[in-house]
Design a protein around this nucleic acid. Sequence first.
DNA 1: ATTATTGCAAACGCTTTGCACTCCC
DNA 2: GGGAGTGCAAAGCGTTTGCAATAAT
Lengths: 153, 153
Amino acid sequence: MKSGREVVHEEFRRFLKRGDHRITPERFEVLDHAVDYEGHFGADELYVQMKSSHSEISRATVYNTVELLAQCGVLSKRNFGENKTRYESNVGKTTHDHLICTNCGAIKEFSEPKLQKIVKQISKDIGFEASGYSFNIFGKCTNPSCGMNKENE
Amino acid sequence: MKSGREVVHEEFRRFLKRGDHRITPERFEVLDHAVDYEGHFGADELYVQMKSSHSEISRATVYNTVELLAQCGVLSKRNFGENKTRYESNVGKTTHDHLICTNCGAIKEFSEPKLQKIVKQISKDIGFEASGYSFNIFGKCTNPSCGMNKENE
DNA sequence: ATTATTGCAAACGCTTTGCACTCCC
DNA sequence: GGGAGTGCAAAGCGTTTGCAATAAT
């Protein structure tokens, strides 16, 4: 039986061949660090994390590769309104969207199957081939420790 | 009877007083240019446009003011996944979201009242005071001229 | 008078680019 | 061998910041 790691490698390899991209060790090294990363990360954060684990991959390659991984479907590309691109591993996860606390920065996930249907319906109505969507809810979380820091300032 | 312009000025003035912000001519100059701007704009684009119409307002003030206008509700703050903040006048418009063509950059609008209900329901379920949401559909528009440029490259 | 606001320029953070070198195909 | 991919450093872009001058309260 194949490990999850092997399955993802295979998936990425097939994606690369399909698109006439070359199979390089650098790309798989980025893949491994990306799927191991806990939570959401920016390309630069991943680069820094890799560097600190003594990886030699360059910043440019990390940026290029996470983009390929997003196209491939291994990663999701997100934007939480902070003017930076964030990624998140899809391995072992189901479709979900996010609630973002504008007070403490906490991010919670939720699933809402209706959204897919809405996307389909609207695309059909308007004349649009949808390839994806992004849905974020902004607000204040009810976590008792939310905003603590601010109140003490 | 009051003109639309006067109404918005009044609205902004009330907002400023309520929040203990000062009433300055610069803020109203930015307001005027912002609501006159056709379509979506970045703070910097607005600054450049103002500069070219011989306005003397500084970049910093434009950035500060569009943020206040968004808080006030005169503008909507958007993010179409390009790592830059975009604004859009709400004057004379109803709630809507966007379809973004990843091929030619076209942006179409749609209204879907179900989204508000979904936001409420999810916030209630998860324990979250929602203040807003962002919903974008990405894909390819069926405009016959879409992607023309690319195909000729 | 007090202090928020302004203008300017410099710095910032994330991302992209140009170019020479490398190594996958 | 040809050309995509890599590494590096520099540049790019939107945005924020520090500070002295200005003006609203």
